[in-house]
Nucleic acid binder design. Structure first.
Lengths: 270, 270
DNA sequence: CTTGTCATTTATGTATACAATCTGCTAGAT
DNA sequence: ATCTAGCAGATTGTATACATAAATGACAAG
């Protein structure tokens, strides 16, 4: 059930090749690529033309993206692009840490007498960590292939943890947070920043934490699991901070463009 | 900004007297009153007639309510009423505790040198607690008026706490959780269950925790604040459990009807 | 030159017609 | 009697026309 990550996009009914999906996926990609400036108004007709859909399915996408947090409702009319500060994203990552921490604790607490060791999802976690050991050694900032494998395994680790918690509520909230830019366990930006030696170092520290988490779970140390996962999430913060510092100057890769350094004129739309 | 709780419903643009609002508010009320059985399909045309809106704004409401978590997208067609177990709601309340705990900790950590004492929002918290002291004494299960006042003050306390955290991310997530049945700090069910002596007792314990939270914040004990708030949220669980146990038999007030005892046939729609 | 009002224009909110798809039923065959 | 295929009905997905409210710009008054 909650095993596979697949499933087109879940909500917004309609077969995944519907106009609504085309609009949602297309617009989300545009937004995450920083194609629009924060605060910019999303005019429906031009957007519909650009995405090759009519206004109705586009509207569905706009509403969805507002709930996802990428857009904000303009007080009087339509939608505008939401403004993200680094602080917002850091807080979101920390919330993710809270949720994963709770998931880890519940995984231990709810596994009953037998302990977590018996569960198949726990086997998946262990297998992911085992393979990550070798993948992490391969990582050198050049091998794109190894990095892709790293991401797959890391996501597998985190998904298996959620499965173990058996909590629909946590599952839901995590799925939600994962749609916020840079908040997911393996945020897309890892892909591009992983050349940096500091980032590689952080991936290795993360892998050490993976081991500690497995260890604590096997011992039934629920609180330790929770704390480890909270700290584990903070690695994403560090990683993001590094990527951000790197581009203090001008270029700023497209994926980072949605972030506004500070509050600026966080107030009105203008 | 985040000071007032007002603002019609925030998203779903449109002036608050729009058809979209009528549909959203109307349908949400129907759902929370347990008018539909979990798993039931939400047919658009009958619903539109019932709510006196056309299909287009109704559709907006359906999509919104799916994101809020009250509806689920049927794989192939339309929306169905989501199934809630007591476990789901308990987990959601615990997540609320995590968020409020983080908010309290941030409030202390981010208040800088001067400490939290200087902040106006902290004054609001103290004032709310002060008045709650007298209101709580008045509560006797008969005075509806005192109960209403209790709810207002309690919500003020929790909102001021969020304001102190100065975190848009937490604010957002809390606003979201508050739309889940029984997850808000002063869940609607308090209103009807407060006759029960056990519930009254719980409200008094909660007030004691309020004092402890204020105390810890003044001392700058961030971690203690966090733990207190996590535990504070669990009172809602106890309260809900009491209300639920009370109606083991048959009647089950309308507000509790959306909860299904256990997973039953949590699988398919049928 | 500035400011306020009004008309024009443009974009969004709403309703509805049409198309595509699923559901359920009936009839026929095994 | 049961299962399958095909058809009819109903329901959702999509497009679009129309209504309505906001933004824009022109013009006049101060």
């Amino acid at each position: 059930m909650a095993t596979s990550r697949a499933k087109a996009d879940d909500y917004t009914m309609a077969p995944s090749d519907s106009q609504q999906m085309r609009a949602l996926l297309g617009l989300r990609e545009l937004l995450l690529n920083g194609e629009f400036a924060p605060g910019e108004r999303m005019a429906e007709i031009p957007l519909a033309n650009r995405l090759k859909v009519s206004r109705t399915p586009l509207r569905v996408a706009l509403i969805s993206l507002e709930h996802e947090g990428l857009l904000a409702a303009h007080p009087t009319r339509g939608f505008i692009v939401r403004r993200f500060t680094l602080q917002d994203i850091f807080d979101t990552i920390e919330i993710r840490g809270l949720l994963e921490g709770m998931a880890g604790r519940l995984a231990v607490e709810r596994s009953g007498m037998r302990g977590v060791t018996e569960e198949v999802a726990f086997q998946r976690m262990k297998e992911a960590v085992a393979e990550l050991d070798s993948v992490v050694q391969t990582l050198d900032g050049k091998s794109q292939e190894a990095l892709e494998r790293y991401i797959v395994l890391n996501e597998g680790f985190h998904q298996a943890l959620l499965d173990l918690a058996r909590s629909e509520s946590i599952e839901r909230e995590m799925q939600r947070l994962a749609k916020m830019p840079f908040a997911a366990p393996s945020s897309g930006f890892v892909r591009r920043q992983a050349e940096l030696p500091e980032s590689l170092h952080i991936l290795r520290i993360g892998q050490d934490q993976h081991h500690a988490i497995i260890d604590a779970m096997m011992s039934g140390e629920a609180t330790r699991v929770e704390n480890l996962l909270r700290e584990h999430a903070r690695l994403s913060r560090r990683n993001l901070q590094i990527a951000f510092d790197k581009h203090r100057g001008e270029p700023m890769p497209s994926s980072l463009r949605i972030i506004r350094e500070s509050a600026e004129n966080k107030g009105e739309t203008r």
